[in-house]
């Protein structure tokens, strides 16, 4: 029995070397709290699978998968919505040009997601729910996640014919006015605004929290702040559109933002 017990060990975690003491403690604690996979975990997995199968079968029996008329390039569905998980992007199309909403934003999201572990230098709060230890990361990530969710909910539930906003209690037969009073500031103003937003956004946190900058180093700091500023640019643009009817913040001959 003993020999099997010993085989269970942690790999050599280099970054833990300086906290060797902690590691030992944890080893001791962990050993006490270990559980056998067979049968305890396997049974739980089995139960989950059975429960999920039940849910799926009942769901499939009660609700038929949608099937509309055969594809007809001549007739557009109105509204024609993307699958729900992409409705958020479709919702962004209202506020941004396709190359931003459909290509840049998702690409940036994915790249930023992949960079998270490399730019998050905060070693604390690994492996547990610890809000107080990782306020900055959690707040920003959750806001981003929530925004994605909100966009999906808006697109899925609140958009009616011609992609107009309809509250759930409103009838889709009422024709909504298409917003036709959009305007854009001239390029100089737009550029200044953008420069101000990004410039100040880069500088102010550094001045406010020097510690943060020191920990990150210039490269990480730039990446982190740029991603966060880009993320918040989306709700800001939406706000500008809804409040001030601004179509583009920056108009250039090549692209509009």
């Amino acid at each position: 029995m003993g020999e099997y017990q010993d085989r269970y060990e942690f790999p050599d975690l280099k970054f833990n070397v300086q906290r060797g003491k902690k590691r030992d403690n944890r080893m001791e604690k962990g050993e006490k709290k270990d559980m056998f996979v067979w049968p305890d975990l396997v049974v739980m997995e089995f139960l989950t699978a059975v429960a999920l199968t039940i849910i799926l079968i009942v769901w499939a029996l009660l609700v038929n998968a949608p099937l509309l008329e055969v594809a007809n390039p001549g007739i557009s569905e109105n509204p024609s919505k993307a699958p729900w998980y992409f409705v958020g992007l479709q919702e962004l199309l209202v506020y941004f040009d396709p190359w931003i909403a459909g290509v840049m934003i998702p690409s940036i999201i994915i790249i930023c997601l992949m960079m998270i572990p490399y730019v998050d230098v905060n070693p604390r709060g690994s492996g547990r729910y610890a809000f107080s230890l990782r306020k900055f990361a959690l707040i920003n990530f959750n806001i981003g996640f929530l925004m994605w969710l909100l966009l999906i909910l808006t697109g899925y539930f609140l958009r009616g014919p011609d992609w107009q906003l309809y509250w759930p209690w409103e009838s889709w037969t009422v024709v909504k006015k298409v917003e036709d009073n959009l305007w854009s500031p001239d390029p100089a103003t737009g550029l200044t605004g953008l420069a101000l937003y990004f410039g100040l956004g880069m500088i102010i946190p550094r001045l406010v929290s020097r510690d943060f900058y020191r920990k990150c180093g210039p490269a990480r700091y730039t990446i982190v702040m740029l991603s966060i500023l880009l993320m918040y640019f989306v709700p800001i643009k939406i706000f500008l559109r809804l409040a001030f009817n601004i179509r583009y913040v920056l108009v250039t001959p090549w692209f509009n933002i």
């Binding site: 975690l13 280099k14 970054f15 998270i116 572990p117 490399y118 998050d120 070693p123 604390r124 709060g125 690994s126 492996g127 547990r128 729910y129 610890a130 990782r134 990361a137 959690l138 990530f141």
Partner: peptide, 11 residues
């Protein structure tokens, strides 16, 4: 993300 499980060595 909430459990910080992406932190080293799990990047």
């Amino acid at each position: 993300f909430l459990t910080g499980s992406y932190k080293p060595p799990r990047e």
